[in-house]
Amino acid sequence: MTDRSRDGLRPSLDQPRRGFMPRFNIALVLPAQLTMMAVVIVPTLIILWLAITDWQPTQAIPWYDATPVWFWNFYDLWYDERFVNAVGRTLFVVGVCVALELGLALGLALLFLDEWPWRRVAVSIIILPMMIIPVDAANAFFMLFNERGPINHMISLVIGAPFEFSWLSHPTWAMAPIMMAEVWQWTPLMFLLVLTGLMNLPQNQVRAAIVLGASPVRIFFKVMLPLLAPVISIALLIRSIETFKIFDPVYILTRGQPGGSTETISMFMYNGAFVYFRMGYIAAAALLVLVVVISVCLVLARPMTKHS
């Protein structure tokens, strides 16, 4: 409705140029569209082909001449424990990290509701992690979680005994530093989103709840949270999508080691394609992931347009 009234002036002004305009507006989107074609749409079509071949660059035949194996790649994937585990692990990482980020962000944001002298400085420092290069964040965590790093040192000081645990080479615990790096780096983003939402909340509704005698907990759950819901759902959506792609910290910290125990989907596919050179097989995995991700996103992306 608002769109229509906003554009109300245009049609009459367009009148004399009608013959020219339609092409012009398409010409404007062409550079963007062609770039997308080259880097996204054409490769997606190539995937469709590669996914049914067993192409390996080491075979010394060009990919377009590769031998089709039809649907065996998908069959293999289904029974490939490493792939299935990577999928499960990725979903686990998304669930845990995003939930932690949201919880921490909500808690943090509530600390910043009132005005106090060094509030702005504190916000600037707390959002520092999201400003740095993810590879560098992982690099820092690589040092922190070294067996001779400060984390082990702090634990030693607390338990009063030498603690030289080798986090990154332990099959169970190697995932912890990766997830901590992820949460550390992206909680600030979630915090900023929630804080923005809280600051834009209609203040008088909160005040009205206060004078009606409601407790802070009741106000938070009955008044603030419902008002925040759109912002939170956008934040969850965006962070889930981003976390699903997690690659940089895994590569820097473990490369999926030890024994594939920290492989996420992205890491699994990288290892498969660029360590074992099974391009066709990985293309099949990529195709699966693309189909699932795009169909899920098409459904979930709607709230983004509704809000604003």
Binding site: P202, R207, A208, K222, V223, A229
Partner: peptide, 8 residues
């Protein structure tokens, strides 16, 4: 602005 709880 009345501050009616808009989500309730």
């Amino acid at each position: 602005d009345y501050a009616v709880f808009s989500k309730l």
